[in-house]
Computed example of a mutant assay.
Amino acid sequence: MARIAHLSDIHFGANDPAIVAATEEWLSQQRPDLVIISGDFTQRARAHQFQAASDYLKRLRAAGHSLLLVPGNHDIPFYDVIRRFGAPLQRYRHYIDDVLCPWFENGEIAVLGLNTARSFTFKDGRINQEQISLMQQRFGSVAPSKIRILVTHHPLFAMPIGMGNELSEAVGRHEEAVQAVCEAGVHVALAGHFHRTYAEAARKMVERSGRSLVIQAGTATSTRLRNDEPQSFNWIQTSGAGEIGLQVIVWLDGKFKPKSHVGYRFLDDGWIRSEIADAVDTIKHGLATRGPRRPSSDAMA
């Protein structure tokens, strides 16, 4: 079994220090195999914001956590035009991680991060041909028994956002990216950007999308909330039998608490939902699925 904490949009410079400290305490107690942070480490890509984010990551590493990190659009300077177009991710590479497309692999999972932040698109994301080739190369050598996970800041698919579930724009080179996800056999696509938790089988969202499960994270520590959704992050547990438990950990009453909890089972045509054990009990003792049930919408609050 592999245990993953998926945080996103921590936005140092517009963050709550108490919630930041609470994420460290929660991670220290649960001891995930991997901590993923899918972009937007800062609010405006200023040096002091990057320094604060860097200090946070140093504390996580000192606590023994393995990290996989990708930049977000807020990690590119917005007002500093010269730096934005001349050296957009210089500060990110100095303070956060010099590797923009990181890789993690153990006996259960293989995880690739891709940088979707671009100078010219401002808030929107983009995938380039080199990254598509890297995805195919990396996942092409992974054993079939492992869960293949792709991490980006911007979701590859058009996502429901806002109270009316209006759809966002997909990333640039969307069709090529989705085709590459299919060919690489990606099981799970993790992203952030919209400060909203959401999960759905890709085949329900886009035709010819393959068999991946799309999982969105809310903002873990930012004070800039959307749709009245509180701060949260995802707790994901995988098993070699092709099962995933997805639990949303939500900031309520001054602490992080387990809330929505959904199980997924991987079949020939992709992921379906399955029943899962009590939320709090699962945090302590791991996954426990009890057979498949009819698939349904997986939006999570």
Rank of each mutant, 00 (worst) to 15 (best):
M1P: 12
A2S: 15
R3W: 07
D9L: 00
D9P: 00
D9K: 00
I10Y: 00
G13A: 11
A18C: 05
A18R: 15
I19Q: 02
A21N: 13
A22K: 12
Q30C: 07
P32T: 01
S38M: 05
A53W: 01
S54N: 07
K58L: 12
R59P: 01
L60F: 03
R61C: 07
G64R: 06
S66W: 09
V70A: 05
H74K: 11
I76M: 10
I76K: 06
I76N: 08
Y79M: 13
V81C: 08
V81Y: 13
R83I: 06
Q90G: 07
D97Q: 08
D97F: 11
D97G: 07
D98L: 10
C101S: 12
F104Y: 15
N106G: 02
E108I: 00
L114E: 01
R118E: 08
T121G: 08
K123H: 04
Q129G: 10
Q129E: 13
Q136S: 07
V142S: 02
P144S: 11
R148I: 02
V151G: 03
V151F: 05
P155N: 11
F157P: 01
G162N: 07
G164S: 15
N165Q: 07
E175T: 11
Q179V: 01
C182N: 09
V186R: 08
Y198N: 06
A199V: 08
A199M: 15
R203F: 08
E207T: 15
Q216H: 10
Q216M: 15
A217C: 06
S222Q: 00
L225M: 08
L225E: 02
Q231R: 09
Q231P: 04
Q237R: 13
T238V: 12
T238M: 10
G254E: 05
K255Y: 10
K259F: 14
R265C: 11
F266I: 07
F266N: 15
D268K: 12
D268I: 05
D269N: 13
D269W: 04
R273C: 04
S274L: 06
S274H: 13
A277H: 11
K284I: 01
G291I: 03
R294H: 14
P295H: 11
A301L: 10
